[in-house]
Amino acid sequence: MSGDSQGYKVVLGVIGADCHAVGNRILTSVLTQGGIEVVNLGVMVSQDEFIDCARAEQAGAILVSSIYGHGELDCQDFRARCEERGLGDIVLYVGGNLVIGKQEFAAVEAQFRDMGFDRVFRPTVDLAEVIALLKSDIDQRRPAGLRNSRALPAERLSA
């Protein structure tokens, strides 16, 4: 599936000074098995590193993780930065423990959507759901000529 012009390629990383590597390993494994090509930047990734990589790889989406609570500081102006660098249309996801302390998820979601993220996820989200949304969102954003009429059915996660 990867490399295919109709394929799904994403850039994945943990933003800022965050060094939580476990979820990143798990995400890479599950997304790959779900039919998504993952370019994994690992931990401690800056906004520019995400954007440089997404441009170089012509990725359909950037998946930002943040576990350590500084997400609010690290993700500031991420969409604006993408627009400056000519990636205004890229699918932008963020997930993890995004703020300091336990807050209503709806409020956190609204806050990060205001920053320009297309979707915001809890750390306990069902990854099969993320895969399905990701494929559908990438398809929607493809240039019209390349767009699938229907999203490909999500590959099943292997049991």
């Binding site: 576990i67 350590y68 609570g69 423990n97 703020v99 300091i100 302390g101 336990k102 807050q103 750390p123 306990t124």
Partner: peptide
């Protein structure tokens, strides 16, 4: 008890 949500409150 707030562990899944990151930094806890004093009460947690």
């Amino acid at each position: 008890p707030h562990e899944a949500s990151g930094v806890p409150t004093l009460e947690a």
